[in-house]
Simulated scan of single mutants.
Amino acid sequence: MSPDPDSGVVTVFAPTGIGEITAGTDLVDVVLRAATADPLGPLRSGDVVVVTSKVISKADGLVRLADQRDEAITEQTAATVARRGPTRIVRTRSGLTVAAAGVDNSNVAPGTVLVLPPDPDASAAALHAELTRRSGLDLGVVVSDTAGRAWREGQTDHAIGAAGLRVLERYAGRQDAYGNDLQVTAMAVADEIAGAADLAKAKLAGRPVAVVRGLGHLVEPTGRPDGRAADLIRPLALDLFRLGAREAVLAAVLGATGQADRYEELVALDEADRVRAVVEGAGVGADAAAVLTAVLEQA
């Protein structure tokens, strides 16, 4: 039986005893053993298992040499959202908007970096299938990663992959305690689960897996609506912040001057070279060139 969603009690624990994960490690065996050995273990039906993307990447052998970091970021990038010098905020090929395409050098061997799983939802689904098969339990799985927020300092974990879990709790059509009709409210529960799990895992404790207990009403069979982390990604047509302020100006100028296909090429240049390249590519007269220069430099 699923726990009562109105009980107000959620338990989070991060098992110890998970050693270094390497290519080919049986993550399911590692998770089951660690959870069973924990005082709050073993796993129960309705639990949500949260696994950091790093252990997925390590088990899948997604390791690169540190001097290949820039190349790896470029390979993982579908579009540049914002760039300031070497710092890049990009949309990855899987649709995530993250710094450096999620290529990371923390909690990895010196001289190496990790890239994100190419399809985090597929990684979550594979882990979920084996965990439920071997345990015989109804479980949810979240693959988490760390990200910043556009309007706030600091970072928090969010869900980049999910399986066996409703990732959005939609309230549209319901009424609040005052009788007001709710129209657009939807809680990103998978992200909240990832953030809660991160509090238990901590960054330096060597606990890359956490179990969130008490949210069994969100655990559902795979294939149900709102059952993938990709369902949390806002469609580009509805994304009001798909580009940084400077990059939005650049894209607009390039579109107006017939150079839209040069965006990725030019956004990588420093400001002086970028302005010069845009103006030269526009092929306009001196007055128009001065206007374009002013617009780009003031962005």
Rank of each mutant, 00 (worst) to 15 (best):
81 V>C: 12
63 V>D: 10
147 A>S: 13
136 G>E: 06
150 A>V: 15
292 L>A: 09
102 G>S: 05
18 I>Q: 12
54 K>Y: 12
142 V>S: 05
246 R>L: 10
165 L>S: 15
130 E>S: 04
143 V>Y: 09
51 V>K: 01
227 G>R: 02
275 V>H: 06
109 A>I: 01
14 A>V: 03
221 P>R: 04
234 R>L: 11
135 S>D: 14
272 A>Q: 10
7 S>C: 14
31 V>Q: 02
22 T>P: 08
234 R>I: 14
159 A>V: 01
250 L>Y: 06
15 P>R: 05
276 R>Q: 14
288 A>Q: 13
260 A>E: 14
17 G>T: 00
286 A>V: 15
248 A>S: 07
108 V>P: 08
51 V>M: 15
276 R>C: 09
239 D>K: 00
296 L>F: 04
271 E>T: 10
27 L>N: 01
54 K>F: 11
138 D>Q: 02
91 R>E: 09
207 R>E: 14
126 A>P: 03
200 A>M: 06
53 S>H: 07
176 D>Q: 07
7 S>G: 15
84 R>W: 13
102 G>V: 03
151 W>L: 13
169 E>T: 11
254 L>A: 01
89 I>K: 14
274 R>N: 04
41 G>P: 09
43 L>R: 00
152 R>I: 09
53 S>T: 05
267 V>E: 14
82 A>W: 02
5 P>T: 04
6 D>Q: 08
25 T>I: 01
204 L>K: 15
279 V>C: 02
292 L>P: 10
90 V>T: 04
56 I>E: 15
128 H>L: 04
67 D>I: 02
24 G>H: 12
76 Q>C: 14
161 G>R: 00
249 V>M: 09
85 G>D: 05
211 V>W: 12
107 N>A: 10
86 P>F: 07
126 A>G: 06
32 L>N: 10
280 E>R: 00
152 R>E: 13
73 I>P: 06
298 Q>V: 00
149 R>T: 07
57 S>W: 01
72 A>P: 04
258 G>P: 10
108 V>R: 00
1 M>A: 13
184 V>P: 00
299 A>Q: 00
24 G>L: 14
73 I>R: 03
177 A>K: 09
277 A>P: 04
287 D>T: 07
102 G>D: 02
75 E>Y: 11
52 T>F: 05
16 T>I: 05
134 R>D: 09
150 A>C: 13
23 A>V: 01
259 Q>R: 00
156 T>G: 14
52 T>S: 15
135 S>E: 10
225 P>K: 02
7 S>A: 15
182 L>R: 04
150 A>T: 15
113 V>D: 07
255 G>Q: 06
144 S>F: 11
183 Q>F: 06
66 A>T: 03
228 R>P: 14
227 G>N: 11
172 A>I: 06
150 A>Y: 15
25 T>R: 01
40 L>Q: 12
184 V>Y: 11
115 V>P: 00
